[in-house]
Amino acid sequence: MMRVNKVLEITDLCKSYKDFSLKNVNISLDRGYIMGFIGPNGSGKSTTIKLIMNLIKKDSGQIKVLGLDNIKDEITIKEKIGFVYDENHFYENLTVQEMKGIISPFYNKWDENVFEKYVKDFELPLKKQIKHLSKGMKMKFSLAIALSHNAELLIMDEPTSGLDPLIRSELLDVLQSLIQDENKSVFFSTHITSDLDKIADYITLVNKGEVILSKSKEELIEEYCIVKGSRDILSPEIEKIFIGIKENQYGFEALSHNKNEVIRRLVDSVIIEKPTLEDIMIFSTRRSEQHVSSY
């Protein structure tokens, strides 16, 4: 079978509820990369993931995974996806070994050697009941299952939420080593943007059901900047180069997506800093309010 380079293609995806709509979402992820999918709670991240997994029905648009239609080719696709999400979806009274025994027959390409390798790496207690595992251990078990059937796309919904920093760091290391062979990709939905500062290649930001931006992390860090300065330099003309502005009694802080323009016009009168993904998310999603009077 021909190797498809586009691992995930979402085109004009729409889904409406009574009080929320996902509007014309477009996302594209190539093989061998990690995409961070970010946005405030309630912005549409989980809805998008449920639509990819065909757990809910879309209103319109198209979702392709590895070149295949996510509805027509659902069974083939689910063989190729590893799914890890925040809530535990295992039978609590079973042991790790018993639960693995139930899941593994569902996958044609289940590889027991790979599973055993992760059991060893993650120090998973095979004879322990799942209800007695810590949240970090449950996440490692989820990940071990997801990685043991030769999945080409790993979809993760808030996987690091509520984990201690050590376990989170371990998880991020596993994800980074996973894509070294350039055969697998990761779609990582989270509101903990500092995790993505470390490992993401691409960032897609959603807010109120719409994609605000979708770019490589390099481009974002290159193009965007945080600007700090005195309020007296703000004018309607200058404000046009900012995405969002926070003001307080000492001055202002703003985000711009045109670092070169800021340097050209303001370099001597402001401090220019590299933004974090959190800066970009907070300022971009507050855009409609434009001014926030205090921190």
Score class of each variant (00 low, 15 high):
Leu172Ser: 08
Leu172Val: 03
Leu172Gln: 11
Leu172Trp: 02
Leu172Arg: 15
Leu172Thr: 03
Asp173Thr: 13
Asp173Trp: 00
Asp173Ser: 15
Asp173Cys: 06
Asp173Ile: 08
Asp173Val: 07
Val174Thr: 12
Val174Cys: 06
Val174Glu: 11
Val174Asp: 05
Val174Trp: 03
Val174Ala: 08
Leu175Ile: 12
Leu175Cys: 14
Leu175Trp: 09
Leu175Asp: 08
Gln176Met: 13
Gln176His: 09
Ser177Pro: 00
Ser177Arg: 15
Ser177Gln: 13
Ser177Leu: 09
Leu178Phe: 06
Leu178Lys: 12
Ile179Pro: 07
Ile179Lys: 03
Ile179Phe: 02
Ile179Asp: 06
Gln180Leu: 13
Gln180Pro: 01
Asp181Gln: 14
Asp181Glu: 15
Asp181Asn: 15
Glu182Ser: 13
Glu182Thr: 03
Glu182Asn: 14
Glu182Pro: 02
Glu182His: 14
Asn183Ser: 14
Asn183Tyr: 05
Asn183Asp: 12
Asn183Lys: 15
Asn183Phe: 00
Asn183Cys: 07
Asn183Leu: 12
Lys184Leu: 09
Lys184Gln: 14
Lys184Phe: 06
Lys184Gly: 09
Lys184Ile: 02
Lys184Val: 06
Ser185Trp: 07
Ser185Cys: 09
Ser185Glu: 07
Ser185Leu: 09
Val186Ile: 13
Val186Ser: 07
Val186Asp: 03
Val186Leu: 06
Phe187Met: 02
Phe187Gly: 04
Phe187Ala: 02
Phe187Tyr: 08
Phe188Ala: 08
Phe188Asp: 06
Phe188Thr: 04
Phe188Trp: 04
Phe188Pro: 09
Ser189Glu: 01
Ser189Phe: 01
Ser189Gly: 14
Ser189Leu: 02
Ser189Cys: 15
Ser189Tyr: 03
Ser189Gln: 02
Thr190Ile: 00
Thr190Ala: 00
Thr190Asp: 01
Thr190Val: 00
Ile192Tyr: 12
Ile192Gly: 09
Ile192Val: 12
Thr193Ile: 05
Thr193Leu: 15
Thr193Phe: 00
Thr193Ser: 05
Ser194Cys: 01
Ser194Lys: 11
Ser194Ile: 01
Ser194Val: 02
Ser194Leu: 03
Ser194Thr: 11
Ser194Met: 04
Asp195Leu: 07
Asp195Asn: 10
Asp195Thr: 10
Asp195His: 09
Asp195Lys: 12
Asp195Phe: 08
Leu196Arg: 14
Leu196Phe: 11
Leu196Asn: 11
Leu196Ile: 05
Leu196Glu: 09
Asp197Leu: 01
Asp197Ile: 00
Asp197Glu: 15
Asp197Phe: 00
Lys198Asn: 02
Lys198Leu: 13
Lys198Ser: 04
Lys198Gln: 10
Lys198Pro: 00
Ile199Gln: 07
Ile199Phe: 02
Ala200Gly: 08
Ala200His: 10
Asp201Ala: 05
Asp201Ser: 12
Tyr202Cys: 04
Tyr202Pro: 04
Tyr202Met: 11
Tyr202Ala: 05
Ile203Ser: 04
Ile203Val: 13
Ile203Gln: 04
Ile203Gly: 06
